[in-house]
């Protein structure tokens, strides 16, 4: 128990990243089958909220995490790019499922499937599986939190850390 009159010394980066990684607000953004597993992760049995990541926002302007859950088609690709650009910095992307990683089972004849969402937005964590289990998504969220922890999160530096889209 820390006495109430004590002083904690830390860096600005540490405080910022502490706040960011423990209150990730994902965008309500389901594309296909994986979205059902994403919903299951947020629902009663798996409860994403435990990791400070359950406040699904319906608008990109309030979200800082985009979970691309499902097959990205060419018709949808430009919309995803728009949604990503509407999100305020700092923002992160989890690519959930084989389809958004590399086209999944639709890689061969999928004339209308984008083979990997990383062709349009930068991805931080790839989650394999078709569809990934909710535990896998939880692991991905924790991995992202680790990544945010080691990122230097001062505003000026942030831009240079992120690879350009």
């Amino acid at each position: 128990m820390i006495p109430s009159d004590s002083v904690v010394m830390t860096s600005v980066d540490e405080v910022l990243s502490w706040g960011r990684r423990n209150s990730l607000w994902p965008l309500t953004f389901g594309l296909a089958c994986c979205a059902i597993e994403m919903m299951a992760t947020g629902a009663s049995d798996y409860d994403l909220e435990r990791f400070g990541c359950g406040v699904f926002r319906a608008t990109p302007r309030q979200a800082d995490l985009m979970i691309v859950a499902g097959t990205v088609t060419l018709k949808m690709a430009s919309r995803i790019r728009t949604l990503y650009e509407q999100m305020p910095e700092p923002k992160w992307v989890i690519s959930m499922g084989s389809c958004s990683n590399k086209g999944g089972p639709y890689w061969h004849e999928g004339y209308h499937v984008l083979k990997g969402v990383d062709r349009i937005v930068p991805v931080d964590v790839y989650v394999p599986g078709c569809p990934p289990r909710p535990e896998t998504l939880l692991e991905a969220v924790m991995m992202l939190q680790k990544k945010i922890r080691v990122q230097e999160s001062s505003m000026g530096l942030l831009g240079s850390l992120r690879k350009p889209a």
Partner: peptide
């Protein structure tokens, strides 16, 4: 927006 070319596959 989710046309995944099932019939072609």
């Amino acid at each position: 927006y989710l046309h995944r070319c099932f019939e072609k596959h």
